[in-house]
Design a binder for these strands. Structure first.
Lengths: 233, 233
DNA sequence: TGCATAAGTGTAAAAAATACAATATTATTG
DNA sequence: CAATAATATTGTATTTTTTACACTTATGCA
């Protein structure tokens, strides 16, 4: 047994994480992505995903959490590993492989000043500029993953405030899935899942009648999951 | 613009790929996994997934293909990136992050001599020994991914010979999903997908009557996919 | 020729998904 | 205070999909 033994013949590479950060603009009722303006060459001034390098004492999840916290000031952001991107010349500066993540945040919660510091901006999917390196490929894959995930896991709520109306939830799904849904069938479906709590409170901003507010009941969801329930929309 | 510019302050790490190689034993009608006996310290003699390090001129997919070819002699193996494992101390020798892959092969196609060279063996899921490092975690995640994938993509055929009976296909699904299926409902379902070609040929090994052989019609599947069809079992 | 063995097939019931439109609530206004 | 305007809420009929369930067929062999 040797001290400081290693695998000497092998080549090491830089490891990055890049985050596709999604948010839902309740006012405009559109899905948005948070992008930063690159402050170093090459491609200085172009738009990119927020990223960073893996630290010596971090897992890639740690690194992604750190990167997300740095930009938004938030902790415990929902995130999920997406895919490794490793084309040899993907980063012209140096061989770097990148682990892409998708992350979902409530667009109103984050630290506005921080994102200004990073010259970051929210873009609708329509207005999204072309991104550097292979970031467009990451983004496209991330959007597909999001579309799939919201259909099979109750993660859409991460994009909404704690209390939301049935209509907001429906708009969120319509926007992410890029489809129209029937409101009668939608609420029937959602209610049949029995994972939302209907509050007595109403949101009166959108109509005279006001619409009931709901809350995602995570405990109920977990309990049902233990009993074999599978979320499906 | 500088020559040989890089990101100097960041730390580099070794990058490995590890492959969870699944096969279906038609005779025993069980799902198996191909493991190798480790020939270096630490954990020499213990069982592990087949792996290798990322080469300087390879993508991680390239590396996984190479690793799979090295062990099996096969090319164009179905494989899919699973997840990055990056616990700081996961490899006690040196900081290494590993990209895990699942791979599906026909258990009768591969090069028997090669796997002997690597002291590799097929194990049923029941007999699978404990694996080194975090390879058990990789394996468990890989099995979940396989279960999900065979339900939503026509990849089960990768585990069977080109021509197979409806019963073999059903056994394969039963084994992977760890459930029993009704043969009437199963063949009704499969046939309704219209992606199999029923041959005139029969396999007479399993019964006097013989059972019809089928072939996966990839072209038909691709055409249907273009038209919005989604495989679902 | 009849027996043993696995292959192959159909139908009824239940559940889930879809299509579709009228009524309820309340603030505002005349 | 009655009418109105605007959005919220709710139910039913139809179609499709899934599930449950058992008998007939083909053939080699005794």
């Amino acid at each position: 047994m040797f001290m400081n033994s290693n695998y000497p013949a092998e080549s090491r590479a830089l490891i990055a994480v890049d985050c596709i950060i999604f948010g839902f603009d309740e006012h405009e009722e559109v899905l948005k992505v948070l992008l930063i303006k690159r402050d170093m060459t090459p491609h200085k001034g172009d738009w990119s995903l927020m990223g960073g390098f893996l630290g010596i004492d971090e897992t890639v999840d740690d690194a992604a959490s750190r990167v997300l916290h740095t930009l938004t000031g938030l902790d415990n952001i929902y995130m999920e590993q997406l895919h490794v991107f490793s084309e040899v010349a993907r980063d012209p500066v140096e061989r770097t492989i990148s682990v892409a993540y998708i992350a979902l945040i409530n667009i109103n919660d984050h630290d506005q000043k921080l994102i200004q510091q990073y010259s970051a901006r929210w873009f609708t999917l329509e207005d999204k500029p072309d991104l550097i390196f292979d970031h467009d490929e990451m983004f496209n894959l991330g959007l597909s993953r999001l579309q799939h995930r919201v259909s099979t896991k109750p993660i859409g709520f991460e994009l909404l405030p704690e209390k939301f109306t049935m209509r907001q939830l429906q708009k969120l799904y319509e926007e992410i899935l890029a489809t129209d849904l029937d409101k009668r069938n939608f609420s029937k479906k959602i209610n049949s899942l029995e994972i939302l709590e209907k509050l007595d409170e109403k949101d009166k901003r959108s109509s005279r009648k006001g619409s009931y507010l709901f809350k995602f009941d995570e405990e109920k969801y977990k309990e049902k999951s233990r009993q074999g329930f599978h979320f499906k929309i």
